[in-house]
Design a protein around this nucleic acid. Sequence first.
DNA 1: TCGAGTTGGTACCGATCGGTTCGATTCGGA
DNA 2: TCCGAATCGAACCGATCGGTACCAACTCGA
Lengths: 182, 182
Amino acid sequence: MPTHARERLVAAAEQLFYEEGIRAVGVERLLAVSGVGRASFYRHFPSKDDLVLAMLSGYDERFREWLAHALREAGDDPAALFDALAERFGTSALRGCASIRTMIEFVDPDHPLHRAAAAHKEAVVADLDRWLAGLGRADHAELAAQFLLLIDGAVVSAIRERGPGPAHRAKRIARALLAAQP
Amino acid sequence: MPTHARERLVAAAEQLFYEEGIRAVGVERLLAVSGVGRASFYRHFPSKDDLVLAMLSGYDERFREWLAHALREAGDDPAALFDALAERFGTSALRGCASIRTMIEFVDPDHPLHRAAAAHKEAVVADLDRWLAGLGRADHAELAAQFLLLIDGAVVSAIRERGPGPAHRAKRIARALLAAQP
DNA sequence: TCGAGTTGGTACCGATCGGTTCGATTCGGA
DNA sequence: TCCGAATCGAACCGATCGGTACCAACTCGA
């Protein structure tokens, strides 16, 4: 199965970067796990950073697809979004989200990988904003930012705690938030 | 000034690890910035990881001192804690907190550095819990965990946004939270 | 004053880093 | 079936990684 070198590289990157970290995984490991030759790697990606970029792009797409589905399921109850988050936390082993981790591993705000990871978060908050506005909430902009803060806080908490607990906690906070300004 | 090699190493570690990341900074840079000789480094710290441990220990001490002071200032209004957080965000350039960043850079939950960083968070939530219990809140345990979720969420948001905005946002959430269960 | 202990500086170690180059082989479309 | 394109594997590059060993200079207490 020597075909699709690019796809196998991205798949290996997603797995290894998630399990161990970006800086912690060298090109050698990526080649070994993906079974891709060194030359093929650098034909598809000018540098390791470009592979990280491709990984981030895939993460952005998949996460926001998941988010869109979760928002549809939530109906007209914004707090229900955190039920979907709890489900997400329950299934996978929790090592944070690719965006937060990339922003932190490449903490210089001018670094291309930091910018790309931050752009994902801004896209997510824009998605949330549109959704809340569609639900007729006057405070949609502020509420969207607050929801992202709750999501990120839950993700960071979940790194230590394992399991859906932090997502449930975030949901209870969201409930209080919605009750305050109905 | 050839004395105090250890203190200078820890100071350089705090600065460089914060500005660039732990894995991103090699021993060479630490020696150059601190002005410490290579042999002196390894006399004080058996390995680079032990220097990270010392940095974390200093961070834990200083942060919790700051927290204790902020809690005293807050008086009987729990949400006022986030005013202190906003002040903290306003002054320093924001690149996250040492604990979150260490947990993420060493994401394996069994890694000694991950454990040390996680232990700091657990100590913080214990501090919050004692404080809230002292204020007579029946929901102190849950509220403490929720407060830490808000703090961590604000820290992650502040990495992208700069400035005290995320702390103010967290304060508004905290207000709603306290209003829900007075 | 003197000597033990700490210091900074340097050379060096094997391993790994990201990246380049050159075949030998295999795949896939015409 | 055949040929170009894509593939894998390995040798190789300079740089840097974390860590060791040795040395001359310095500090400081007895």
